[in-house]
């Protein structure tokens, strides 16, 4: 595949996997947690690097999963002791992120890992860092990681579909029915963590938040069914990847930045014209209702 082909594939996979996880994230009202985890996984990556001295996919995924879970547990721990939810999120992730930054500056300090890269990603390097996969040949390591994460995350969403639905909609009933609500919560936090780290190389910690939240928020405006929202959200993520790539090519600017911008444009369009919740539709309905009142 061509250099541009790999970049488009990487970006599309990021959009797809972030869109899927993002849909549940929005419905569980945890957008702030995504913000937190996408930053604190940096610490997990740095520690994984310090322990193994290499930046391979598997180690980074494990480190990120651990850091994400640690974030979720610490936030819960502080919250249970009287600290406001949002305050505890803010305290935990900035602290973990700061430790990660300090470790990079003092312990790692080489070309493979720097703060700029962590925040913004560098998708243009991805096609060069390849690995050999039996049956697929030489493919970029990031693409392999993203494929694995997509399979795992997509599989978990499909397998536990009913449990995700009920624990998101009515956790009290879910718990009363014997569905392990806390386990599902931490499983979801782990899914966000591995998604964030898989997308990390491509788009970085800041842009991954846009990829997680915005396509899902747009999809939410188009449908009244959870399954459709999940698919639409993934599709919007892929669309944003293509549109962002095209925009970056035309404007000769950052690919990840353009992708995040494209998600924003998609959301704005949805916000204006989606049939049920869109601004235009609401105006029309209000107008029609006013007409009925007059006649």
């Amino acid at each position: 595949m061509s250099y541009d082909g790999w970049i488009l594939l990487t970006a599309s996979l990021v959009g797809l996997v972030c869109g899927l996880v993002g849909a549940l994230l929005i419905l569980r009202r945890m957008a702030m947690m995504a913000d937190a985890i996408s930053h604190s996984v940096l610490l997990g990556i740095v520690i994984a690097y310090l322990v193994t001295r290499e930046l391979s996919g598997a180690h980074m995924l494990l480190g990120a999963a651990a850091a994400g879970l640690l974030t979720a547990v610490l936030v819960q721990w502080l919250h249970a002791r009287g600290v406001q939810q949002e305050a505890s999120i803010g305290i935990v992730f900035t602290t973990l992120f700061a430790i990660g930054v300090v470790l990079i500056a003092t312990q790692v300090g080489n070309a493979h890992l720097d703060v700029q890269h962590a925040l913004m990603g560098e998708i243009t390097f991805i096609p060069w860092e390849t690995t050999r996969v039996p049956g697929l040949g030489e493919i970029p390591e990031s693409v392999l990681t993203l494929l694995i994460v997509l399979l795992v995350v997509g599989g978990l969403i499909a397998a536990f579909y009913k449990a995700w639905k009920i624990t998101s909609f009515d956790p009290a009933l879910a718990a009363a029915l014997g569905i392990p609500v806390a386990f599902m919560h931490y499983l979801f936090m782990t899914m966000i963590s591995v998604t964030a780290v898989a997308a990390f190389d491509a788009v970085g910690a800041v842009m991954v938040i846009a990829m997680l939240i915005t396509p899902a928020a747009a999809a939410y405006l188009w449908t009244d069914r959870l399954s459709v929202m999940l698919l639409l959200s993934g599709l919007f993520g892929v669309l944003a990847a293509f549109a962002g790539y095209a925009a970056a090519w035309v404007l000769d600017t950052s690919i990840s930045g353009s992708m995040a911008f494209a998600t924003g444009v998609l959301f704005l369009i949805s916000f204006l014209i989606s049939p049920r919740h869109g601004l235009a539709a609401r105006r029309l309905r209000a107008h029609a209702a006013a007409g009925r009142l007059k006649s």
């Binding site: 397998a159 009920i166 909609f169 009933l173 959870l226």
Partner: peptide, 25 residues
């Protein structure tokens, strides 16, 4: 206690009452 803007319909909410019996998968 729940978010009534959740993307689902009335029948689906009632079905949730059966999740304990339907089983996980």
């Amino acid at each position: 206690s729940v978010d009534w803007d959740f993307p689902t319909d009335a029948l689906d909410v009632v079905l949730m009452g059966l999740y304990g019996r339907i089983g996980w998968f």
